[in-house]
């Protein structure tokens, strides 16, 4: 299970980094989303992978899973979701007003 989760995080990160290095905003945003999925799974795994155990301490449970990473992931998911929405809106605004969706500033532009 550890190998499966680790390679999933690796594959997501690799794909995310590749897409972030693209020139147009749409793949870049997809890449950022993939990276945030990768980090969410990674954060989830930081409490160690445990199956079928309660996330709270109780005397009759044989073991338990760490509840804190789940709370951290929830926060991270909410934040990355909001941030993705913001970047989509700004990128759309830039595309519609500039008629060009390249991430970098093109040569000859006046800035």
């Amino acid at each position: 299970m550890e190998l499966l989760v680790a390679s999933a995080i690796g594959a997501l990160t690799a794909a995310g980094v590749y897409l972030v290095l693209r020139q147009r905003t749409f793949p870049v945003i997809l890449g950022v989303s993939l990276l945030s999925y990768a980090v969410n799974v990674f954060l989830f795994a930081t409490g160690r992978l445990v199956v079928n155990r309660p996330p709270i301490l109780s005397d009759d449970a044989a073991g338990y899973t760490d509840p804190l990473p789940q709370a951290l992931v929830l926060t991270a998911i909410v934040i990355s979701f909001g941030m993705t929405a913001v970047v989509v809106m700004i990128a759309l605004g830039a595309y519609l007003s500039g008629d060009d969706d390249h991430v970098d500033t093109r040569p000859g532009a006046d800035t």
């Binding site: 905003t25 950022v32 945030s36 990674f42 990355s80 990128a91 500039g98």
Partner: peptide, 25 residues
Amino acid sequence: ARLRAGVQYVVYNLLGSTLFLFALG
């Protein structure tokens, strides 16, 4: 010009935030 610079700024900082989470994890 401002919106385009804004896209770069936001994407760069989103990547920084992702890195931050990896570090904290």
